Simulated assay, not measured.
Amino acid sequence: MYTPAEAAAYTGIDAAQVRRWLFGYASGGKHHEGLWHPQLEGDLEQALSFHDLLEIRFVHAFRHHGVSLQAIRRASAHARETFNQPYPFTCKRFQTDGRSIFATVLEETGDESLLDLVKRQYTFKQVIKPSLYRGIEYDNGKALRWYPLSRNQHVVLDPSRNFGKPILTGSGMTVDAIVTAWHAEGQEARRVAAIYEVPLAEVEAAIQFEQRTAA
């Protein structure tokens, strides 16, 4: 599980937006529901699962292009039913068939925020681009784990390991433990690698991830 603050750090999306999209918001004396029901709803207050974490990256891409929350909500519902996937934006089929989902929403609602996305194939490809899927490892269409660093797979978020918190892929050491040691040892990466008997490349990846999330 992840807090909105952790989700913000790992994805670069503002925590307030994460809360708004997943857990709803109040406006004009009315409560607006989140875009979908989080996987951990009812178990923990305002906690995201691994799949919620990945799905909001796609919501962020749609919002950056100007797609309305109402259109995203309807598209998510249509895609869940069409693809038989609880988290449809993340599934690879959305990369090829998602445009037809938005076309259906446009036909139903006339939402002009979808016009470019539906009518221009290149626009859809710009929004749903390979980088959104890069680093996600799949099995039978389901996301299993995510390697968030674009240039290597030394850091992984895997819900079957360390509760999905970032760890070093090879050694299993937590990123937090390595980064804490790096600061304690005067930011000497080689010394940390020797102390914990892990490859220097893994230590450097942990530091890169920490600096990326702190930015």
Rank of each mutant, 00 (worst) to 15 (best):
L40H: 08
D43T: 12
H37I: 15
E33W: 01
E81F: 08
V67N: 10
F83G: 01
A47K: 13
D52M: 04
E33L: 12
P88Q: 00
F83W: 01
W36H: 10
P38W: 06
L53K: 09
Q39D: 15
V59D: 03
L48F: 03
E55S: 03
L69D: 14
Q85N: 10
G34C: 01
L54F: 04
H31A: 12
L44M: 14
P86E: 02
L54P: 00
T82E: 11
G29D: 02
G42N: 10
R74S: 13
S68D: 03
E41A: 15
R80L: 09
F83I: 01
S68F: 06
Q46M: 12
F62V: 00
H78S: 10
V67R: 09
L69T: 11
R74H: 11
L35R: 00
D43Q: 14
V67F: 03
Q39M: 11
Q70H: 12
P88E: 00
G42Y: 08
G42D: 08
A77Q: 13
F62L: 15
E55F: 02
E33I: 06
S68W: 02
L40K: 01
V59W: 10
Q70S: 12
I72L: 02
N84Y: 07
H65T: 00
W36N: 02
P38R: 02
H78L: 15
A47D: 02
H60P: 00
G29K: 05
I72W: 03
L44E: 10
S76M: 06
Y87S: 06
F89W: 15
R57H: 02
P88W: 01
E41V: 03
E41S: 15
N84T: 07
S68N: 07
H51S: 14
E45K: 08
E81L: 06
L53I: 03
R80E: 11
